[in-house]
Amino acid sequence: MKQFLVLGVINGAVYGLLATGLVLVYKGARVFNFAQAEFGTVAAFFAYWLIEKQHLPYWAGDLLAILGIAIVGFLVERLIVRPLFTAPRVTLLVATAGVALVLIQLQFIIVGANAVQIGPALRGIGVNILDVVVSPQRLLIFGVLVILGLGMGYFFSRTDLGLAVLATSQEPVATELAGIGTRRMSSFIWTFAAVLGGIAGVLLAPTGALFPGFMTITDLLPAFTAAVVGGITSLPGAFLGGLLIGITQGLGEFYFGSSTIVRGAANLLVFAVLVLVLLVRPKGLIGREA
């Protein structure tokens, strides 16, 4: 059981990172970004190409991959989000799903349907936590995410740019009057969200097989649930929500994972949490606007 819990926490940190990206976009554009997980997948493929094919050092490959996805995020904002600035939000939502589809199809064309592998960033023997052997890569993921979480907390509460981003999302008109361009902020928000997705992608890449759309399939739904549990507008809430969902999944896997009657029990549990939170407490469990 401990094993499932520890794995759950680490997976949860990834969900949390994706969820913060979702929250950021929601605050900026009042839309759910269905392409958020694909930002991660694309970054993972960038990293694979740079590290395995171009033989760049690990850190350089990852950095370039994140830079690449930042450009993708910027382009998505320019080409898709901006023309739909005044469209109904659900239209924009369908458009983000379309972006996800385009990215997945591009992966099929360029990489193909076969799964590829990327070596771990850190080699070595696993570390023993609570009698559970955790690979160095997973520890790295967790470490980076915690640092990133703290960094974002600082960015959004102490720096001018961070505060400006939050201001745009709360009072668009007033912000415009205060001289902060909501349109420029929109570019920043989508780029930043893509970077968050990208970081999750390059961190996750070495832990499993890479195939087109893999993060949308495994991580998008838990990330959304995390964001909703956190109240959809709270960045720390989203991060904590991620951990909660990760643990829920771990427990689901432990108790029902071997069931032959119902498959995918862990995901079923996540779905149950999502429906329950939305119907009973749509403000989220731990949410607070921040």
Partner: peptide
């Protein structure tokens, strides 16, 4: 639920139906 939240639920519903 309406709008975006409903969209999210329908997406999740589809996922769960396929996988479970």
């Amino acid at each position: 639920l309406r709008g975006l939240y409903l969209a999210l639920i329908t997406l999740a519903y589809g996922f769960v139906a396929q996988n479970s």
